[in-house]
């Protein structure tokens, strides 16, 4: 079966190669990053070029639609789930259809509902949180110190109109421009493996090795305040998000436990003992509520 598939795809690939060359002139004025696959017909589905991740200008979804106010998680089964902290339910949106056989590693959600997902091959993909469809980005994987990293958005200022920035935590803290995909190193982090989230413009890191949630200086990476949680795990998967005034910590070796930590009361509470899946990425956008629901 595999052999047959291989031969068929090779033939299709050759045919498409000719088509691509013929189309070369017509496209020659376009920038490399602007290729659009369009509707996935048979030809492009076989050997196409994906539109770069992120919605094209002018067609971007509005900011802070209802769906962007929730927590999203990705698991090792490549499922994208919406987690409702109110009733602690998980709703499977779909399976990530990214063009890779690698596993999921980390995730962050922007204000327009795009999930930026890093895979274990170091690539970053843009995933639509409505249907889990996926597009590759031009992020260059394997950059020194940032082979794999945690991710999270934070507002640039108190006013959301000032925009938001995607921060990544690898060997230190860096910002990642979601248009140019340039990585800008900010400074060292003192914790171990770190995932990121925010409350408004404040950036927080969660180091699962120590269970520490730290408020990070966005200009230097320095720790400005720490919170001690009981979610400590020396190996396994972990993820981190903020919602409703609490930090939501997902930790586990084969299946994940969900722990809520309230910085107000300094209490860690196990909310879901066994989710039945191993969660490796979580994200809540900067549209998520920052105070407890009434």
């Amino acid at each position: 079966m595999t052999r047959r598939l291989a031969g068929a795809w090779r033939a299709v690939g050759r045919a498409l190669g000719l088509a691509a060359i013929a189309a070369g002139c017509a496209n020659s004025g376009e920038r490399a990053s602007g290729f659009v696959e369009g509707e996935p017909d048979a030809a492009t589905a076989a050997s196409g070029q994906f539109e770069e991740g992120g919605a094209p200008p002018g067609t971007e979804p509005v900011e802070c639609a209802e769906a962007t106010t929730q927590i999203y998680v990705v698991a090792t089964d490549k499922g994208l789930y919406r987690f409702n902290p109110r009733d602690l339910s998980f709703k499977r949106i779909g399976t990530l259809g990214c063009p890779t056989g690698a596993g999921t590693f980390s995730m962050a959600i922007d204000r327009r509902g795009t999930a930026w997902v890093e895979y274990t091959d170091g690539r970053v993909y843009a995933v639509d949180t409505n249907d889990a469809t996926c597009k590759p980005t031009s992020f260059k994987p394997g950059q020194t110190g940032f082979d794999l990293f945690g991710m999270g958005f934070a507002l640039n200022g108190d006013d959301p109109k000032e925009g938001e920035t995607l921060y990544v935590a690898g060997t230190g803290l860096a910002s990642l421009d979601t248009k140019s995909f340039d990585l800008k190193f900010i400074g060292s982090l003192t914790g171990g493996r770190t995932e990121l989230t925010s409350i408004g413009s404040k950036l927080f890191g969660f180091s699962v090795d120590s269970g520490l949630v730290s408020r990070l200086n966005k200009q230097t990476g320095a720790t400005e305040a720490t919170h001690r949680t009981s979610a400590i795990l020396e190996s396994g998967g972990f993820a981190f998000a903020h919602w409703g005034g609490s930090f939501w910590l997902f930790t586990g070796r084969t299946t994940s436990t969900v722990t809520a930590y309230s910085p107000t009361t300094d209490e860690s509470t196990v909310m879901v003992d066994n989710t039945g899946m191993l969660i490796v990425g979580a994200g809540s956008s900067t549209c998520a509520p920052i105070t407890p629901p009434k």
């Binding site: 690939g13 050759r14 190669g17 490399a32 589905a45 050997s47 070029q49 770069e52 031009s138």
Partner: peptide
């Protein structure tokens, strides 16, 4: 890629299959 149970192959942004050899 696999879409709807059908195999495909996509180029990442900035790359192309110019020689048609999968």
């Amino acid at each position: 890629t696999c879409q709807g149970g059908e195999c495909g192959y996509v180029c990442f942004p900035g790359f192309a299959d110019c020689d048609g050899d999968i």
